[in-house]
Amino acid sequence: MRIKHSRHFPWLLYLAPALLVYTVFMAFPLIDSLRLSLFSGNNQVTRVFVGLDNFKRLFTDPEISTRYWGAFFNTWKFFFVHFIVQNGLGIFFAVLLTQETMKGRQIYQTIIFIPTTFAVLITGYLWKLMLNPVWAGDFLVSIGLPFLKHPYLGDTNTALWAVSLVSCWQWLGIPTMMFVAALRNINVELLEAARLEGAGSVKTFWYIKLPLIKPIVGIVAVLTFVNNFNAFDIVFAMENVNGAPEYSTDLIGTLFYRYGIAGQHPIGIPDAGLGAAIATITFLLLMVLVIPTLRQTQRGA
C-alpha cells in the first residue's frame, strides 16, 4: 500500500527554506557564471559574446588542449586511486570497526579521522617534508631503508601517485565514518541468523552486509567522484598550481583554477570564459556519470 499525499503544499513548504538559500547563494551565481563560457573578456566592459568559441579553443588550441587532456587523464588516475585505496580501506576498516566484541573501536575510529581535521595546508607541508630526500634521506638511511630515498614529488613518474595517496590518507576518515554508520544500522538478528547458518565473515560481508549498505556505497562513490573531479587544494599544497613536475599532477581542478580564476603565473590574467567552459564540460560529464549511479544504488531516485 502506498499512501498518497496529494497536496503539494506542505511538501513545498518543507523544501522552501533550503531551496531559497540554495538558489540565491549557489544555483543562481553558478548558472550566471557558467553563462560566461559563451563570452570572452574578463569584465563587463570588455565582454563579448563568442558563441562556442571557448569550447572550441579548449579542444583545438594545441597548448590548451594538451593541458586539458593531460589534466583529464590525471584526474581519472587520481579518482581511481581514491576509489580503490580510500574507499576500499574505508569499507575494510568499517567492517573491522563494527565487530561488536572488539575493544578500542572508538579510539581507532578517531585516529583514522584525525588527518581529516587538518587544513590541507598542513597535510601538504608535512608530507612534503617527509617525502623530501634532502630532509628525510638521512633518516631513511639511519633506519636501514636507503632504497626508499627518492624525490617522489619531483619525479614525473611518482608525483601523481604520491599526491593521490596523501589525499587518501587525509580523507579516509569520511568513507570510514559513513560505512560504520551504515553497517551499525544493519539488524543484528540478521547477522546472527547468517552466523548460525554457518556463513563465514567474507560470505556475510559479500551477501548480506554489502547489499544492505548499497545506498551508502552509492553515496560514497558519487561523493568521491564529484570531489576528485573538482580537487585542487592538495596539489596546490604539495606541488604548485601548475601541477609540477612538468604538469604531471595537473588536475581538472588545478587547470580550472589556473585558467579561470588566478591566471597563469606571473601575469595572472584569468580567462573567465575558458574557465567557465572547463567547468561546464566537467559538470556535464559528472551529471552523465552520476545519474545512472544514483539510479542503480538509490531507492526511488
Binding site: K128, N132, P133, V134, G137, H150, P151, G154, D155, P245
Partner: peptide
C-alpha cells in the same frame, strides 16, 4: 644542486 633537487622547494633552498 642538492641530491633530489627535483623536489627541493624555495623554502628548502633558503634553509640549506
Amino acid at each position: 644542486c642538492p641530491d633530489g633537487f627535483e623536489s627541493v622547494t624555495y623554502n628548502d633552498s633558503q634553509v640549506l
